[in-house]
Design a binder for these strands. Structure first.
Length: 438
RNA sequence: GUGGACGUAGCUCAGUCGGUAGAGCUCCGGAUUGUGGAUCCGGCGGUCGUGGGUUCAAACCCCAUCGUCCACCCCA
């Protein structure tokens, strides 16, 4: 089909069920964050370009070639945020949120990266993030992992993801290791793949997670990052592992796990899913103790994660866990998705005022109930057909007899129960009772 | 940014040797004037992604372009 206008590349329209799937993931994330005592922070989508290039790192791919950068009318260079942490830290410093106290925050919203689109990777995509400031111990890292695990549990995805962790050490030990790695790799420079050769100068740690077979072979004998951690860094990581063990949170230590942003230090984590293609990282994060100071704040320990809402929704769809869907108000024969619980039909269009009044009366009596008016006209037969296809559990009927008796009729569309004609209060009570059973 | 596959109705797709476009689903109406799901009948719906070329003739062949998907890459 030929279109006059279409959404720009990599940016999607998500209607009805697709939107509901994202909403479900986001709601679950927010519920978990609230349960852990995190507070919401709302942040701008646009920041100074400089914030990201300094914070994330000039040499990272995200900054070097994936940011949406533009000048405003005064010539200031601005960027659409490619991730949430930098802006969150900036806001915390600007608003004095870190002064003399710990802070736990969450946010959700769109991020922008100019990448080649494919499944699970879009130029505008939604992330949920949580950050904890002022807690230097591994209990902060463990708490964040516990929260993410709670999100998986809430979505029935615990078995669909696996956790990998690693310790990068302080920026000092990280730098020392980087030098050692470069020294080891330098003689092999000609044998490395092109990307890795470039990173040798720009960002040597990133070579570690190269997928190129020849490069991986060279790396087999490379110095081990773990050997460059000092005693306290090693102890911190061990404590984190003990915490996770005692909480029953499974993980795998991956010594090759390196994050794409420069600000990470110490513990880094990545949750990986299977079955959603090559874009399989659904959640990742770690500690970034140096970033607040880099942005001009007082040195403050910090850790956080970001979760890809789109990817988790995709995973949810792949897993299609039949047992996990329990939200429907009428279980028997319920469709997996519907926009309304009650579909209001009327004997004739002339009863529209009475039908609309009845619909609102029902909404008021049963909070949260989704009551939708029939639209489209036609006889009762057509209206009931639409009611059925809408996925609603009930049809509420308003007709001549009902109006004369000041009553309405309620028909169960998914359960084998007789239709009733009763007062609005009685109908509302019947619906509430039916919902309570499911 | 690199490589590959693919773009036909709202959706999923068929379309032979180049001869001027079809099915199923959806939606609407009817069989059924106060009752849905099954069945049957009918209807709405298309610049064949776009632009150019070859040809008497292009959904089909050629070129370009845009888009989608997959992999690389990147990352959530």
């Amino acid at each position: 089909m030929s279109l006059r206008y279409r959404a720009v590349r990599g940016m999607r329209d998500l209607a009805s069920e697709a939107a509901a799937e994202l909403r479900r993931v986001e709601d679950q994330c927010i519920a978990a964050a609230r349960a852990f005592g995190y507070e919401e922070i709302r942040l701008p989508l646009v920041e100074s370009t400089d914030l990201f290039s300094r914070g994330i790192g000039e040499a990272t791919d995200i900054v070097a070639k994936e940011m949406y950068v533009f000048d405003d009318r005064r010539g200031n260079s601005l960027a659409l945020r490619p991730e949430g942490t930098a802006g969150c830290v900036r806001a915390c410093i600007q608003q004095g949120l870190l002064h003399n106290r710990t802070q736990r925050l969450w946010y959700a919203g769109p991020m922008f990266r100019y990448e080649r689109p494919q499944q699970g990777r879009y130029r505008q995509f939604d992330q949920f993030g949580a950050e904890i400031f002022g807690v230097g111990g591994p209990e902060a890292d463990a708490e964040l992992i516990q929260m993410v695990a709670a999100i998986w549990d809430g979505l029935g995805l615990r078995d669909a993801v696996r956790l990998e962790i690693n310790a990068l050490g302080s920026s000092a030990s990280r730098a020392a290791y980087g030098e050692a790695l470069v020294a080891y790799l330098a003689p092999y420079e000609d044998e490395l793949d092109g990307d890795s050769r470039q990173r040798l100068r720009l960002n040597p740690l990133r070579i570690l997670d190269s997928k190129v077979e020849s490069t991986r072979r060279i790396l087999e004998e490379a110095p081990n990052l773990a050997d460059y951690l000092d005693a306290s860094e090693r102890a911190q990581f061990d404590t984190l592992r003990e915490l996770l063990d005692s909480l029953g949170l499974l993980y795998r230590v991956n010594r090759r796990l390196v994050r794409g942003f420069d600000y990470y230090t110490h513990a880094v984590v990545e949750w990986v899913a299977e079955g959603i293609g090559s874009q399989d990282a659904v959640c990742a994060g770690g500690r970034y103790d140096g970033l607040i100071e880099l942005f001009g704040g007082r040195p403050t320990p910090a850790a956080g994660f970001a979760l890809g809402i789109d990817r988790v929704a995709l995973l949810l769809r792949e897993v299609a866990d039949a047992s996990a869907e329990a939200s429907a108000a009428c279980s028997a024969g319920a469709l997996s998705y519907s926009a309304a619980d009650v579909h209001v039909v009327m004997q004739d269009r002339k009863y529209m005022p009475a039908a609309m009044a009845a619909a609102q009366a029902l909404r008021v009596r049963v909070p949260g109930l989704r009551v939708r008016m029939d639209a489209g006209g036609g006889g009762l037969s057509a209206q009931f057909r639409r009611a059925d296809r809408s996925g609603a559990c009930w049809a509420m009927i308003v007709g001549e007899d009902e109006i004369a008796q000041n009553r309405v009729s309620l028909k169960w569309l998914r359960a084998n129960r007789p239709q009733v004609t009763a007062s609005m209060d009685e109908v509302a009570a019947a619906i509430r009772e039916s919902q309570a059973q499911d």
